[in-house]
């Protein structure tokens, strides 16, 4: 009996170690792959046109979903905030509460999660399918470096697109929070705006943008990596897409905690 449980512990430790090793191995691989791709930014041929194309496809394409998420997040925050603040008779702080939650936390995080769902998954699937159909090899045979042409523009695009999308998320969220707080719940409009302006510091805005840049970057890195290294089969691409969404989401949440602890 004793020996059985001992074996089980050893097996458990073994598989934990294996998991840690393969995870580290993949992280190292992803880092080398994305760094070697990013280094090509400063090499000819210049990929500007392809970066703009990806910015359009990934950024502009994600605007609607970001706008909807921003609107409803602002609205629900105003409702919940009012409910809580009313208990202390400080409804006038509602504006500041909604603005700080959105700008510092919810804008970057929800914006990033939406970008993963809308754009990240399609990055992985697209690159994975290019692998399956040998288009990556075809580019290589035509003397086009797939890292420069396929990976680099997508990493740059998500890194640039997310701060812009998050800013839009913030504006729409604050506006819809105002509508619910002031028009529906009857908080004094002047107090709402006044508290908001006096409590939100410039550094809160910076914190939000730094987060957005960081999240955009790791979304680009993880989703391109998963697609590029996908096993070249139908199941391989499906598995890679799932893995990319999970890994990017978890990555964003962990990074969010680390960055928040720096900024407080």
């Amino acid at each position: 009996m004793m020996s059985v449980s001992f074996d089980a512990v050893i097996r458990l430790l073994g598989s934990l170690g294996r998991f840690a090793l393969t995870s580290l191995d993949r992280m190292g691989d992803a880092t080398t792959l994305s760094l070697s791709s990013l280094a090509l930014l400063f090499r000819r041929p210049w990929q500007g046109q392809h970066i703009v194309l990806q910015l359009y496809a990934l950024g502009v394409g994600s605007f609607i979903i970001i706008a909807i998420t921003g609107a409803f997040t602002g609205m629900v925050l105003a409702l919940q905030g009012y409910y809580t603040l009313a208990k202390f008779g400080s409804e006038s702080l509602l504006g500041a509460g909604v603005a700080l939650s959105i700008i510092r936390e919810l804008g970057p995080v929800l914006g990033a999660l939406m970008l993963i769902g809308r754009a990240g998954s399609s990055i992985t699937a697209e690159i994975g399918i290019m692998r399956v159909t040998e288009q990556v090899d075809a580019l290589e045979m035509m003397a086009i470096n797939p890292r420069a042409r396929v990976l680099l523009p997508r990493i740059i695009a998500t890194t640039i697109a997310l701060p812009i999308l998050v800013t839009m998320f913030d504006i729409i969220g604050l506006a819809s929070g105002y509508v619910i707080g002031v028009e529906l719940l009857g908080v004094n409009g002047g107090a709402y705006i006044g508290e908001m302006i006096s409590k939100v510091m410039l550094q809160d805005l910076y914190a939000g943008w730094v987060k957005a840049v960081g999240f955009g970057f790791i979304i680009g890195v993880i989703c391109t990596y998963m697609g590029y290294r996908a096993e070249p089969t139908t199941e391989g691409v499906a598995a890679a897409t799932t893995k990319a969404v999970v890994a990017a989401s978890v990555g964003v949440l962990i990074m969010n905690y680390v960055l928040t602890s720096f900024f407080l």
């Binding site: 159909t133 040998e134 288009q135 090899d137 075809a138 580019l139 045979m141 035509m142 003397a143 470096n145």
Partner: peptide
């Protein structure tokens, strides 16, 4: 990449850029 200008390849599944 300079040598590749002298090579061409036809892939099993054609691999046209779709």
């Amino acid at each position: 990449y300079e040598l590749r200008a002298r090579m061409g390849m036809v892939f099993q599944y054609s691999a046209l850029l779709n």
